[in-house]
Design a protein around this nucleic acid. Structure first.
Lengths: 231, 231
DNA sequence: TTGCCGATTATGTATATACAAATTGATTTG
DNA sequence: CAAATCAATTTGTATATACATAATCGGCAA
């Protein structure tokens, strides 16, 4: 190796060996030290390359046992989850926003359960619509824990979407995403300009700030919506 | 710092500062050298911590310009994509598999376009059903490029699902995932024991081996399906 | 044979050092 | 004054070294 070896080069070379079955599934590959010698690199460099392969799910590593090619490539896909506005503007469409409703109803049992909150905790429900080129793009149905984010009570969601308001005013440390297909209810259908019962793509997100639930949001998209990622 | 500082500790501490707005969105945070001094760690350790934060989308880094807290947290979610069998068995259910059909029809234009293949390239279409505790779990509708994977022509998909056969016999280097909601067609509904028009959750995957398309698969789930990930 | 325990070994990570690459901001030049 | 150039700065990465940690394997004892 004349050129100073980069961990990317090593990573790609090893990925190639796996793809070409030179290192077949289940095989134990040489130790870091041996690879370092073979590639003419430092062990730290080999280590970094292998850690990336492990993160990508191509290999499994265990101390003392060594590194082996994953038998069943439990690969992981990464999705970027931007703000709706960015998502829409990123496609070159004009973004518009409309507040639909805002209330403090007693939340249904299922919402309290999802958030892990006791009875009696005040929740704010905000429903709003995000449009791309004036076509309905996403219906946002959100519950906000007013104990955790009291400022939401007085926030003006007419002009700033709760989405963006929360980004500025309610940081979180953990989040859970759920995606599923559902049938549009009558109200949802009306807002999204669909017929009731048509399929919708629903993304749900719950966020916490150190164990403390902040907000639960359902993001409901018309069936034309696609969530795409490349590996 | 009495204990030898770990990059995880640093990462978490810095994440905390961001969450607590000690380092507010958009702020320029101290350089690696300064942080290393503050934490009593080596710059390499600080670097590793910051790289993780950057990968998670919490900060943006540019040479010479420094590191700043992301203004809009374009966070990324990671989904593990296991084999169906593992997915099902992982839930403690018993896995069953059934081949539905296998043919070499002239593929519809849309399939050829998705794969980027010319007219005349032979494609194998395999449809099969994956069951969890004898309930339909996933309908797999797959197109295989026979030019790239000639062995598929003689493979026995009665007992081994094309899913697992391809994992063993057709490695890939790149993949594209798409998720969407759709309405069940009459056949799909029948197989999945749904009514036609009911919403289904569709995952689509295209794989390539170095630019060369291998297979296109649609994985169709009943509406009870959930895709979940935690950040 | 079974179970415990310690030696061995591969990976995990911290550190100091050195240099590369990118980008900014200032300085020089046309 | 604008454009080109250069120096300074910050992150990116490679390297050698040292030690930590997990897991396996072999041996020993019950």
């Amino acid at each position: 190796m004349s050129a100073r070896s980069s961990f990317r080069t090593l990573r790609d070379e090893m990925a190639r060996r796996i793809a070409e079955r030179r290192w077949p599934p289940g095989a134990l590959i040489p130790g870091e030290e041996a690879l370092a010698r073979e590639f003419g690199a430092a062990r730290a460099t080999v280590n970094r390359a292998l850690q990336e392969l492990a993160r990508a799910g191509l290999v499994e590593r265990r101390r003392r046992a060594g590194t082996r090619v994953a038998l069943h490539p439990v690969r992981e896909a990464r999705f970027v989850i931007p703000l709706v506005r960015q998502e829409i503007e990123g496609r070159g469409a004009t973004y518009r926003y409309r507040l639909l409703s805002r209330e403090e109803p007693s939340p249904p049992e299922i919402v309290r359960a999802r958030l892990g909150l006791d009875d009696g905790v005040p929740l704010l429900r905000v429903r709003c619509l995000h449009l791309a080129d004036n076509a309905p793009y996403q219906l946002e149905d959100r519950w906000i824990n007013l104990d955790a984010v009291p400022g939401a009570r007085t926030a003006d969601f007419e002009t700033v979407s709760p989405n963006e308001w929360l980004v500025e005013n309610a940081p979180f440390t953990e989040a859970e995403f759920t995606f599923r297909a559902a049938a549009a209810g009558p109200e949802e259908a009306a807002v999204l300009q669909l017929r009731a019962g048509e399929p919708v793509f629903v993304g749900e997100r719950i966020t916490w700030l150190r164990e403390r639930p902040i907000t639960l949001v359902s993001m409901i998209h018309p069936p034309s919506h696609r969530m795409v990622t490349r590996l």
